[in-house]
Design a protein around this nucleic acid. Structure first.
Lengths: 121, 121
DNA sequence: CTGTATCCTGAGCGATACTG
DNA sequence: CAGTATCGCTCAGGATACAG
């Protein structure tokens, strides 16, 4: 289960529904994992790691586990040698990704307008 | 400036635009502040504090400062005694709130379906 | 190749007291 | 009323080594 430091986390009390979503996407790399798996379906662990420059194995693994238990990521393990595991989005994960589009558009808008935090002071 | 522990934070490198948005809403109470100011425009500091049960003065103040410098919250200080300050959303803040609606709907959907993290294991 | 097992750091947050 | 100032803590995340 995702246990993030958010209001209402753990006790199931969410004020407006966004909290519930924030718990799912609240990890540092989770929205990027969502995005990567949407753009590149059925990705292996190592491929995902390469798609997210800077993420460590430990964090990627734990994020994937949490997203799996949250029902947005599906993990398929092929019993081969060497081992092969493929990750993809569930239907709910795809819906979550769609729900993030307006937010991404909003973010892109202010990036191109130079209002995004970071570059300009 | 918002300095969250996110990929690309600080250097202005965002992969898909969601990162930029996540930096703005990444604080523990920020989406709730957004929501509260949308539902109850022109709120005073103390009122806001009462609208967000559990938030401390320090965190509320710092979040409001960051959101102000991110251009989503407007702070209007009336030069009176006792002091009066009113917070409201900027146009961009309202747009951000709109962009969060699909996400809230997604979260509500899984809350009512019992899939949200927290209540069920 | 696909992950655990440890250890560690620090940002983010909370509690409390205090100020104009 | 509307905040700062300080202190402390927790836990998400990073580094590295090891395992099946």
């Amino acid at each position: 289960m995702t246990t993030l430091n958010r209001p209402g986390a753990g006790d199931g009390r969410h004020i407006c529904g966004i909290d519930a979503a924030m718990e799912v996407i609240g990890g540092k790399w989770k929205v990027l994992i969502l995005w990567a798996l949407h753009e590149h379906p059925r990705r292996r662990f190592g491929e995902l790691r390469r798609l997210l420059p800077g993420v460590t194995e430990k964090v990627l693994a734990s994020h994937l586990r949490e997203m799996e238990s949250d029902g947005v990521v599906r993990r398929v393990s092929y019993d081969e040698v060497p081992p092969r595991v493929e990750y993809s989005l569930t239907e709910d994960g795809e819906r979550l990704n769609d729900a993030l589009r307006p937010l991404a558009a909003w973010g892109r808008g202010r990036v191109s307008a130079g209002q995004a935090p970071g570059p300009s002071s």
